[in-house]
Write a protein that binds this DNA or RNA. Structure first.
Lengths: 193, 193, 193, 193
DNA sequence: AATGAATGAGGATTCATTCAT
DNA sequence: GATGAATGAATCCTCATTCAT
């Protein structure tokens, strides 16, 4: 019997390495060799498991999106009531696991990837739709018809904070980011409710 | 007779072509040949004028940033009072000239470029600082110490709207974008003033 | 219980698969993995049994040559007299078993292989020599000294018909091919005898 | 003004080098680098002029086919009457320019290429059709309805002689080859006319 | 000023082959 | 016997950049 069961291990290592490398260089101009090397294997093996560089990138995207999704779901479990749930979503968006240098850089680059690769666009849209649905779901109970536009505003603010973070030299500050989004939310609820 | 004074003409053609090509492909993976071809000249000439691909990109950035700067300055000239000036800045941000498909795509990609190329980062920071200074200048008169954070929020929202636009299939909607930012501003002024 | 006696079974499966794959792609650019997959095993096992890709190809050649040899011998058994024997050889050359798409393509490619691999050249020469000997053996009885050149002509015609078949879209027509060769033979015998 | 007019020179050098390399290795497993090196340039330049390896091969085919065509046309110019013309075609087929080691090897490999590359198949078919048309044209005047099958036989013999030449160690013998084909022709004409 | 010519460096991908289990 | 794991070595192709004219 052969050595077996390496596939998931290798794939995960490659996905992590991809995110690290994209974060490190700040761009998608990362070679498969670099990724493979950081993941501790040959580039040939990386191709063996993923078939192409594009698939590696997409797997990395899925990983990041699922991390984010898990964070949000986890936060919602413990939230009580629409107001609390909305706060939970915003907090999760800037939680330490997602709001890291490399992950932020990866997000930015995935937006670029989505311009070229349809599957990347699809994945990013799923994220956007899910976030929007979550926000609207709770906002509706609080501000009715204005839920839609406020959800758009919140989403824009979240993405905007992310992209601006990519320019800063200092470490990402999730607390401040959360505060800013919460402030916008509070304002809307107080005034329009 | 040698052609004289071609330099600025050639350079501008290349800058325009660069923005178009980045917008078309949605990435910085644009070859100098593509750019040069679209600008109606050989790639050798492009190098002759700019020295390197990086310089071409930077010139394109400067162009876009100066377009934006001009739009804002133009809007401010006709504005009267801090409230009106703030509105003018937001309107200028989503004015038809800046809020075009290609330009939006270029912005997104310049954020990526800034991760790698120091000069690109510097240029983008100048834009951010100027915007921030403009916003704070007028906000301070209206909401005092809270000016800083509201300026951050507005800037994040502007960038967020831009980046999200890159994912949409429909044409950019400057009116809706402006409305969203104005709404945020109004809310802040009404509540915190 | 260890599986015993698998070797000949595996080897034959690989040989058949090799011919099929060469026929399918029409070239020697066939990967060991493709061959192994079609033969229902891993490429590692293919190497285990044959040692190298080259050996797999050579085994396939031997197989095809022995198929041809068997066909000819079978035909000769039932032939009576030199004239009849010559006709039998020609008929066997275009018999259904040999004159199939894949086998024809394999022949063509084995001629190419023989340019590079000495053993392949040796095998092909054995085929040529045997055919020549067979033809001359009987021709001598009929046309004496002219046997040599007529044997050359017949052999060339056979190979020519094969190679030209590789270009056709329609299925190989053994009947027509046989008729053409027989016609040449008859002509020689009638005129020169 | 730039250095100019190199394209045809480079292209021809590459075509020649391709034929030499295919002849030398006896297969299509020739790298673009090998070809380019022999042609005295970088592989990048080879790609610049031809776009792809496949196009280089096709150009080499066209070259060989046009050489052959020219040889035949040249021979026909001086031929008088159908019998003479047929002899001229056969002689041209084995004339020194075509019946060289490398060219023979190239022919063999082009038959292989035609299995995979449609354009190669098309080119080879053009050659076959032209040869067939030429032969039939003159045969018809001499043997009427039997022209078709005799043309097939002659064509098969020509190709067969070529392919068998690829196996020999000694230098190609155009005289003997021509004699063999002429003999077949003569026989047909004498008997069936 | 302008460009065709030319290349070095690099990158994605493939594949025969080996190895550990 | 059998195979998943793993890689080194190629190979095609691209591209920024330089140069001669």
């Amino acid at each position: 019997m052969p050595k077996v069961g390496m596939e998931p291990i290798r794939k995960e290592a490659l996905v992590r390495a991809t995110i690290v490398e994209i974060g490190r260089t700040g761009s998608l101009d990362v070679t498969v060799s670099q990724i493979a090397k950081r993941a501790g294997m040959s580039s040939a093996l990386a191709h063996h498991y993923f078939g192409s560089k594009e698939q590696i990138f997409l797997a990395a995207m899925r990983h990041i999106l699922s991390l984010y999704g898990a964070e949000v779901r986890g936060a919602l479990v413990m939230a009580d009531g629409p107001r609390d749930r909305l706060r939970a979503i915003l907090r999760a968006s800037f939680a330490a696991l997602n709001f890291r240098r490399e992950v932020i850089s990866a997000w930015l680059n995935f937006y670029v990837l989505a311009q070229t690769v349809p599957e990347a666009k699809r994945l990013l849209r799923i994220y956007q739709n899910r976030l929007h649905a979550n926000l609207v779901h709770d906002l509706r109970k609080l501000i009715g018809v204005r839920a839609e536009e406020v959800a758009q505003g919140l989403a824009a603010m979240i993405d905007g904070v992310y992209i601006r973070e990519a320019l800063k030299d200092s470490a990402p500050d999730g607390i401040a980011a959360t505060a800013m989004a919460l402030d916008y939310l509070t304002l809307q609820l107080e005034t329009r409710a």
